[in-house]
Nucleic acid binder design. Structure first.
Lengths: 152, 152
DNA sequence: TCCTTGAGTTCAGAAATCAAACTCACTAAG
DNA sequence: CTTAGTGAGTTTGATTTCTGAACTCAAGGA
């Protein structure tokens, strides 16, 4: 199977990765959450090569993760903003951040911290059970396939 | 900058992606969480090409995400299991699963469901604030860089 | 002895990535 | 009104990566 065909797997993780699983894409989104919006700024902040950035932004827009908004006429200039679909990737980025901080800590402490506007604390968000409210780890959970693997 | 150099970025997300951000790697981990352990089974379940799978497993082991355990002498046979570091990637996979289910739903319902052993419910884990316990979304949070971007 | 299995490695062609240079539509400076 | 600069891309050609198919190796079984 080719990477470009993983969206044919009957699996939501594969579906998600078919959109955000390419090189540089999650770094672009990381920076979008940090309020980066313009092409030249993404170039600088992500370090992605120009043609790759161009292609990635295009597919993120096509898939509804970013939207392209005009911020100047004459000359025509556009910027890229997270859509609701894009904002909803926050947990993915936060989980990667948390894992990186935990297992590959920097000697000078975490480069980025996250605070909760509601309570004002600097926090490391954790997964909890929406039914009983308990904090969750891998061993508390059980994943179950509801039907045999197939070509979607 | 090259993709192979993103571990030089002073950013935990980039650090994390330098280990799990390559093509196929997160699909391998997805299946590891579903109790897949052997080379030929990973081949089948992920769809990754043979040489790619071989290389990815090697770097996951080298980085401490998986461990290689012997399950047979004569002939020598090994299997791959998640380490504590690997198990701790659960939130990343769950977040991708949740996002895929929400924004690219399958007409037959979610292919995989997750249940909480503690309370027995089928759940969709969500991020919560460890300080005040409130459920969190992107707009409730603020990410803040603690020092200027640099080469780590 | 020959066939099969599991776990890879090797190989050569195809696809993706990369850095550098180029384009295009303007604006600003002299 | 000619030249330089800016932002947002394309184009180009060399380099890496990926990919499928074939091959290897150690052992087990018929």
């Amino acid at each position: 199977m080719r990477w470009s065909e993983i969206d044919q797997q009957d699996c939501s993780v594969a579906q998600a990765l078919s959109i955000v699983g390419d090189r540089w894409t999650l770094l672009i989104l990381r920076d979008a959450f940090m309020r980066v919006r313009r092409f030249e700024d993404f170039l600088e902040s992500t370090g992605a090569p120009r043609p790759v950035l161009s292609e990635r932004l295009k597919t993120l827009v096509d898939n509804g993760v970013l939207e392209k908004q005009q911020y100047s006429e004459r000359p025509d200039r556009f910027e890229y903003r997270l859509t609701e679909m894009g904002l909803d990737l926050w947990p993915v980025l936060i989980s990667l951040l948390r894992w990186g901080d935990k297992w590959m800590p920097d000697k000078d402490g975490p480069p980025v911290i996250v605070s909760h506007k509601g309570c004002g604390h600097v926090v490391v968000p954790e997964l909890a059970c929406p039914e009983c409210g308990e904090w969750l780890t891998a061993t508390d959970m059980e994943a179950h396939r509801r039907r045999s693997m197939q070509r979607a």
